[in-house]
């Protein structure tokens, strides 16, 4: 992840300018060194050491212990449900998010601003409140007559709810920055609106769609509060974070940590993946 930045070597104007400005970012002095020390210490105590402890505890029984814990049938079932629903959620988000972004950017209907604002609500709600909201509509005494309590569809719905803005907010700025002249040029060359979208617009949006879907996937993988209530506490709707919590409650820390390690690995992969996506997008300009 960390590439060493080569100092400017050539004498070309751009490079030298960079060299000069780079010197604006100073080497550490006493005060800033102390500050860095404190920041690193804090980050270690708060984030790094605890996360390391998760991995360490996950492997207390060695590789075999870890493997036994994550291949425990109910752990596997939870993980499978989590991965499958997260992938589904990412896919639906990619499609619906792009559509929503498209409508919000290109279709100036009245109330557009309001919709733009509403999209953020589910995601910003405290997760337990999001869960309660869904329970109220799709629970046992559903006012709309749809009963999803304890179904896997409810899990997907809960995840869709909290990840609603990811793809939209990722695609929207790219779409806004898109030069409509490119589309006009394609139209002059005889392309139909659908062809223009598929061959001209979509390729430009793909990195943003992918990164939005990836973010949604990551969020869905670790989600707890919003799917807790609607899951009905059944084993067929238990996602990995619920499984881990159940193990914590039973003081089975190695098993909880093993599942947590898997979730953590997914988070790290997503961060690396997003970084790569971002660079790919940056290279394209």
């Amino acid at each position: 992840m960390s590439t060493v930045v080569e100092p400017a070597t050539a004498a070309s104007p751009a490079r030298t300018r960079a060299a000069r400005d780079a010197s604006g970012a100073a080497r550490l002095g006493v005060g800033s060194g102390l500050g860095l020390g404190m920041a690193v210490l804090w980050l270690s105590l708060l984030v790094l050491i605890p996360l390391a402890a998760v991995v360490a505890r996950g492997f207390t029984g060695g590789w075999n212990g870890f493997w036994d814990n994550i291949t425990d049938p109910s752990a596997v079932r939870a993980l499978r449900l989590t991965v499958v629903s997260s992938l589904l959620v990412a896919a639906i988000n990619a499609v619906m998010g792009t559509l929503l972004a498209w409508v919000l950017v290109r279709d100036p209907f009245p109330g557009r601003r309001l919709v733009d604002l509403i999209i953020d609500i589910p995601f910003a709600l405290p997760t337990i409140v999001a869960g309660l909201v869904l329970l109220a509509v799709y629970g046992t005494d559903s006012p709309v007559g749809i009963h999803l309590l304890g179904t896997q569809r409810a899990i997907v719905l809960g995840l869709l709810f909290v990840t609603l803005p990811f793809a939209v907010r990722s695609v929207q700025p790219v779409l806004m920055a898109l030069d409509t002249e490119v589309e006009q040029a394609a139209a002059c060359l005889g392309a139909s609106p659908f062809t223009i979208f598929r061959r001209v617009v979509l390729p430009l949006l793909l990195p943003a769609i992918a990164s939005g879907a990836t973010l949604a996937f990551a969020r869905a993988m670790g989600e707890y509060g919003s799917v807790l209530l609607i899951s009905g506490g059944l084993s067929r709707t238990k996602v990995s974070s619920m499984y881990a919590y159940q193990k914590i409650e039973n003081f089975d820390f190695p098993a909880a940590a093993a599942t947590a390690t898997v979730l953590l690995a997914v988070s790290l992969l997503v961060i690396v993946g997003l970084d790569l996506l971002q660079r790919a997008a940056a290279r394209r300009g």
Partner: peptide, 17 residues
């Protein structure tokens, strides 16, 4: 990193330390 870690994992991590 903290933004993409599951809240349950966060809690567990702190308990373990």
């Amino acid at each position: 990193l903290p933004l993409s870690v599951s809240p349950i994992v966060v809690g567990l991590a702190l308990v373990l330390v």
